Simulated assay, not measured.
Amino acid sequence: MTDMALILVTGAASGLGRNTANALVDEGHDVVVHVRNPARLADAENTVRWKGIITGDLADLDEIRQVARQAGGFGRFDAVIHNAGTMNSRDAGTVNTVAPYLLTALMDKPARLVYLSSSMHRTGSTDLRRLAAGTASYDDSKLWVTTLAFAVASRWQGTSSHAVDPGWVPTRMGGAGAPDDLTAGHQTQVWLATHHKVTPSTGGYWHHRQTQTPHPAAQDDEFQARLVQALESHTGVPLD
């Protein structure tokens, strides 16, 4: 276990993000939560737990930049958990891939980065023309954000970067009939954000604290480079 850490969790109004943030606070960490709609955090007894609240719609490039600026007001985070996600095909590419990329590029480098993936990334496409065209599917976006996690791991010494498949869990997005364990859905993210002794120390694809083999493209240096180049071109913001 690390000492008390300052941690940002995106998409923390409900579901996995909220559970992750609550678990981190329970362990004694200072947690800043991001929500799209602050009305979703109307229960006052919980809001006092947070170190701070950041708001912004991660489907909008200007608002993503505003989220990064708000985050900057807290200084350098020890860990950032990129949890926010959507299955809406119109917004999947922006929320699930572009937002984590822009926040990563614009914020001070944390010690640890955790990106939420999905087992569905294995059926994603490597056709990056879909990024600029706004036609990315959910599966595409999760392949790309998994690839981003590995690209950061290979480029940024001193920052650990991992991708996590939380499972198909019964959240608002996953649906009430989802078969996987809801509690196990956030435990890996909490562990990666707060523990020193993780093997591999960076560049892992995790499911319930065990490494798995991701889509081959995610670990391909050439595809990583093409993805980063496409994201830099799309946003006008370099990663390094």
Rank of each mutant, 00 (worst) to 15 (best):
S141L: 00
A178H: 06
D181I: 11
Q157I: 07
S161R: 09
Q157D: 15
K142V: 01
G185T: 04
Q210Y: 09
L131H: 03
W168V: 10
T202V: 04
A136H: 05
D127Q: 03
T183W: 08
W206H: 01
P170V: 08
Q212R: 15
W206V: 00
V164A: 01
R155G: 09
Y205E: 01
A193D: 06
G204P: 02
A151G: 04
T159A: 10
T135E: 11
Q189L: 06
K197E: 14
A132I: 03
T159F: 12
A151T: 05
V152Q: 06
G175L: 10
R129C: 08
S201R: 10
G175A: 05
P170K: 07
A193V: 00
F150Y: 11
T171R: 06
S201W: 07
T126C: 05
T183L: 15
V152H: 09
L128N: 08
D139N: 15
T213M: 14
L131Y: 03
M173I: 14
D140T: 06
T171C: 05
Q210R: 15
L131N: 06
G134R: 09
V145F: 02
T194H: 03
H215W: 08
V169N: 02
W144E: 01
G204E: 00
K142H: 04
S154A: 15
T194P: 03
T199V: 14
T135L: 04
T213K: 10
Q157F: 13
H207D: 00
L182K: 12
M173F: 12
T199N: 15
R209G: 01
D165A: 05
G175M: 09
G167E: 07
D165M: 08
G185M: 00
T171E: 10
Q210W: 09
F150T: 02
T146L: 10
W156E: 10
H196M: 14
L131I: 15
T211L: 06
G177I: 14
P200Y: 09
Q210D: 11
G175S: 03
R130K: 14
T159N: 11
Q187K: 13
G167Y: 06
T194G: 01
L143Y: 05
T213A: 15
K197D: 14
V152E: 04
G175E: 09
Q187P: 10
D127L: 12
G167T: 04
K197L: 13
T159Y: 08
V152I: 11
H207T: 05
Y205N: 00
S137L: 09
L148D: 04
R172E: 15
A149C: 05
W191R: 13
R129S: 14
W168L: 11
V145A: 02
G185H: 02
H186E: 06
D165I: 01
T147P: 08
R155Y: 09
G177K: 15
T211W: 02
H208E: 13
R129I: 05
G177V: 10
K197N: 14
D139P: 02
